[in-house]
Simulated assay, not measured.
Amino acid sequence: MIWLFDLDNTLVDRAGAFEAWASGAVAAAGASADDLAAILEVDEGGHGSKEALARVLIDRLGWADDVPGAIGRFRTGVLERVRLYDGVLFSLDVLRGAGHPVAVVTNGTSAQQRGKIARCGLDEHVDAVVVSGEEGVAKPDPRMVEIALDRLGVADVDRREVWMVGDAAHADVAVGRAAGTRTVWVSHGRSWDGPDRPDVVAPTTREAIALAASPPGAVLS
């Protein structure tokens, strides 16, 4: 099997890192719980417009920064606080140890996403990294999957031998479907409320991997 993983909120806790940073920024500005709620809402777990988030931060926290400056501030805050989910490296190592190629397929800027990967020590635990900001395309464009498979040296593999794992239905599940792979949705306790349920749904990435690898010949126990 081939394993393609989203980065934010799949391998690393980007949402938790942003909330921790935002809580500190709100406290430093003497702002309120309502301000924090507004900031978290517009962030959309990392999927919201960065420009819109910057404007809310400037407005709610009284920053003197312009929009690019505010974007830089919160990106730095996330990068300083981001952490891997527990057990993720172990699961990746088990997959690779069994001969299963592993790649990260992530939307975002090169500096930010590569920075998270380096900070969390993911580099040595995956075989390839595909970042939308480096490729000129982004999930759910299926070219992101095709680039990853090419980097792994398996461009001609049967797409049903490929798992796309991620937390975002509109990006990760959608790109897997567009590329014809199997899909794994990391729910973080949410309910799937649309049609066409993914092949595997699990609350955490480790549980998702275990379920996806559970048929005969599974590599995880």
Rank of each mutant, 00 (worst) to 15 (best):
A33W: 07
A37R: 14
G24Y: 03
F18N: 01
V78H: 02
L95V: 07
R60W: 01
G69N: 10
G48D: 11
S49R: 15
Y85L: 07
A98M: 04
W21I: 01
Q112R: 09
L57G: 00
L40P: 01
I58H: 01
D34P: 02
E19C: 02
L61V: 08
T106L: 10
V105G: 03
A29P: 02
V42I: 15
L84K: 12
T106N: 08
G48V: 14
H100L: 12
D65I: 08
F74V: 03
E41A: 14
A31E: 04
R83V: 11
L89F: 05
S23T: 14
G108W: 07
R83K: 12
Q113S: 05
L40H: 03
A38G: 08
T106D: 07
V104C: 02
Q112S: 11
A37N: 09
A111R: 13
A29V: 07
I71M: 15
I71P: 01
G48A: 14
S23C: 06
F18W: 10
V82Q: 04
A37E: 15
V94D: 04
D34H: 14
S23L: 04
A22D: 00
G69Y: 08
Y85C: 04
V67H: 06
A54E: 06
S91Q: 13
S32D: 14
V88R: 09
L84E: 11
G77V: 04
D35T: 13
V82I: 15
A70N: 02
D65Q: 12
G87Q: 08
A52V: 14
R96N: 05
G115W: 04
L61R: 06
Y85V: 12
A103Y: 06
L92E: 01
W21G: 00
L79S: 07
F74H: 06
P101S: 11
A25R: 09
W63T: 01
G72F: 10
G62R: 15
L79I: 10
R81G: 01
S91I: 07
S49Y: 09
D66Q: 08
D59A: 14
A17N: 02
A25H: 00
G108S: 06
D65L: 08
G69T: 12
L40Q: 12
V88T: 10
V88Q: 01
A33I: 12
A31F: 08
Q112M: 14
P101G: 09
L79H: 09
L84W: 13
A31D: 03
R96W: 08
A25W: 02
E19I: 02
A37Y: 09
E80W: 04
D86Y: 06
T106K: 08
I71N: 06
A111L: 11
G72V: 12
L92N: 01
F74G: 00
T76Y: 04
D93R: 15
G69C: 10
A103M: 09
D43N: 15
P101T: 12
S110M: 12
R83P: 00
A37T: 10
A38R: 15
R114P: 02
V105H: 08
V56M: 06
P68H: 13
V78S: 01
L57I: 12
A28T: 04
G87P: 08
A98W: 09
T109I: 09
E51Q: 13
D65A: 11
V26K: 02
Q113F: 07
R81A: 03
V104Q: 03
P68F: 15
L89Y: 03
A37W: 07
V105W: 10
V102I: 10
